[in-house]
Simulated assay, not measured.
Amino acid sequence: MQITVLTVGKLKEKYLKQAIEEYSKRLSRYAKLQIIEVADEKAPDNMSLSEEEQVKKKEGEKLNKYIKDNSYIVALAIEGKQLTSEAFAKTIEDLGVSGKSNITFIIGGSLGLSEDILKKADRLLSFSKMTFPHQLMRVFLLEQLYRAYRINNNEPYHK
């Protein structure tokens, strides 16, 4: 399986880079992983709603350049469906069984994802009703992908 994590913004924090490297290494036993970062747009604090939409639209255009036609697209969005780790593992397994061997997970910037990207997604996935930094979501996503493969292979993993 080919998994692409398409994300807005560069990681700066060393501890997040180390966590991503660790989970990327662990995942390499199960799937081919590619992480693609696109530059985020400047988003000053006092923006109007229309300015926020423009920022998301520009970021969406950058993301869109990397979305492959044959990929199953999962957008991380607070309004998405929440799954247990077991249900997430089953989703990954079902996609593989149904012949969808390319999955692209999309993580937006600090303002979220554009409507264009949300509409293009095959599934909206939420990790929580809470808001998390988009850089930290990469770590959460990779950990859950690793957990999903461990579950699907009946391998032990802490609960």
Rank of each mutant, 00 (worst) to 15 (best):
P44A: 10
L136I: 14
V97N: 07
E52R: 14
L95H: 06
L111W: 11
K119Y: 13
L145V: 03
L118F: 06
D116F: 07
S48I: 09
I103E: 02
I103T: 15
A89H: 03
A39R: 15
K57Y: 14
D45H: 10
R26I: 10
Q144A: 05
I35V: 14
G60N: 10
I20V: 15
R123G: 01
L125C: 02
Y149W: 14
A89R: 03
G109E: 10
K57M: 14
T4H: 08
N102Y: 13
A39P: 10
L124I: 04
R138W: 01
I117Q: 08
N154V: 03
K90C: 00
L111C: 06
H134F: 01
S98I: 04
L11T: 14
V55D: 05
E155Y: 00
S101G: 08
Y157P: 00
H158N: 12
T4R: 14
L124E: 06
K159N: 05
R138L: 12
A39S: 15
G99W: 09
A43C: 13
R29C: 07
E51I: 11
K58Q: 14
I92S: 09
I117F: 11
I3W: 03
E37A: 08
L76S: 02
Y149V: 02
E155N: 03
G109P: 11
A39Q: 15
A148E: 04
S110E: 11
I103W: 04
L33T: 05
I36M: 13
V55E: 08
R147G: 04
E41N: 09
L83T: 00
H158D: 07
S48H: 12
S50R: 13
S126V: 04
D94M: 08
E52F: 02
H134P: 04
R147T: 03
Y30L: 09
L145H: 01
Q2Y: 05
A31Y: 00
M130V: 01
V8F: 08
L124T: 09
